[in-house]
Design a protein around this nucleic acid. Structure first.
Lengths: 207, 207
DNA sequence: TCACATCTATTACAAATGTCACATCATCTT
DNA sequence: AAGATGATGTGACATTTGTAATAGATGTGA
């Protein structure tokens, strides 16, 4: 089974390689660091499965997946996600991604990989559980209530750098009050309690 | 060159293995997850170098190093540290540890390993730079001003899990006020501003 | 145009956080 | 015993943070 791994954290990429190659018949043909590399690597190696981080520096895993799937609709792509990327799941599904896993539980990556090879689509349990109403799609879930906007994401990342509301306001040319509103909304959406939990959550998710 | 790696993060341990074995003549004989395993593994494999995380669940790398060095004074132990463990350096030196490296720059781990094998003692540049007055030891630096106690470290780790002062107080059987004092002191020692920065700092250091 | 959503902002308020000065108690040192 | 040390605690205080209700400005689609 030929795999290509794309993750912008070199440590994670090599750790994944190690973990994967512990499995029978698994060979990591190549690893890349960014979504922009993913397409090239796919063309070059035509792996059985492409394992890719969804959040990367330049080109996101999601965008890369879209590209690749438009060129190779049969491609089997498994996205590695983190807590805070829930809102991409719908898009990923539309594009035809074959699975969506939490990076955290690396023990489930190998089984998922094999499952995908047999044509299945795989989602980590934690992921399913965080998407209320995913399988009653017809009913029309109000996604807006859960989606995190670009700006909100920016705010989160600044919180996770330890900036105060005032500093974030300066950074984004907003008033401090607006930043507070943003954060209040984010906390509401994520179910977290305060900025520290948000930072912790974000940083833990980011790998 | 026979190495034993001990790190309680399985991902990191396997990543280190991968990185190390990319080097010439380097073989990771075994990996362990905790300080308590370190002594056993050392006895069993007598590695040329023992590479060990300083901060681990049960038995810290520092304690394990002390143990091992009292039984095998010739042992070459290289501790992997993070930002927030600066205060252990002095102890580590007293015990006779052969080096102290930042986990972050994994590119320097392999060279350091070889240097240690030739009898040298190695310290990452960032580490040296963070120890004011290390080489004017005679003058007597007041380490207490910089040292972070076990309890403080515990508090920090709870902050980095997103707990509130009240929750931390409950967890550690202290009053909320005392926890506030602890955190205030910690912020003073570290030069950080608030609990969020502390959490961010700690989490970023922890890899 | 009307209705609606989005982004930004303001206000007032409640709660959590951080700082500081000081108090208490046990332990260790001399 | 006297003094120093360290861990814990308290109270007062200023600041920051989070919540809620509300409103203007802007854009978009029917």
């Amino acid at each position: 089974m030929k795999i290509v791994v794309v993750d912008d954290d070199v440590l994670v990429a090599s750790a994944l390689k190690t973990i994967l190659e512990a499995g029978e018949d698994v060979k990591v043909a190549a690893t890349g660091q960014d979504g922009s590399e993913a397409l090239e690597l796919y063309r070059q190696y035509k792996p059985d499965v492409l394992l890719m981080d969804i959040r990367m520096q330049e080109v996101s895993g999601l965008d890369a997946a879209k590209e690749i799937l438009s060129e190779y609709p049969e491609a089997r792509i498994l996205l590695l996600t983190t807590f805070s990327d829930d809102e991409y799941i719908v898009k990923a599904l539309k594009y035809g991604v074959k699975g969506y896993l939490l990076k955290q539980d690396y023990t489930s990556i190998l089984p998922a990989l094999k499952a995908v090879c047999t044509g299945q689509t795989v989602f980590g349990t934690e992921i399913i559980s965080r998407i209320p109403g995913l399988f009653k799609e017809e009913k029309g879930v109000d996604w807006k209530e859960y989606e995190i906007s670009e700006k909100e994401l920016k705010v989160i990342s600044l919180v996770a750098e330890g900036l105060s509301n005032k500093e974030i306001a300066g950074e984004l040319f907003l008033s401090e009050g607006t930043v507070r509103n943003y954060i209040s909304n984010i906390l509401d959406k994520t179910g977290l309690r305060d900025r520290t939990q948000l930072a912790v959550h974000y940083l833990n998710a980011a790998r």
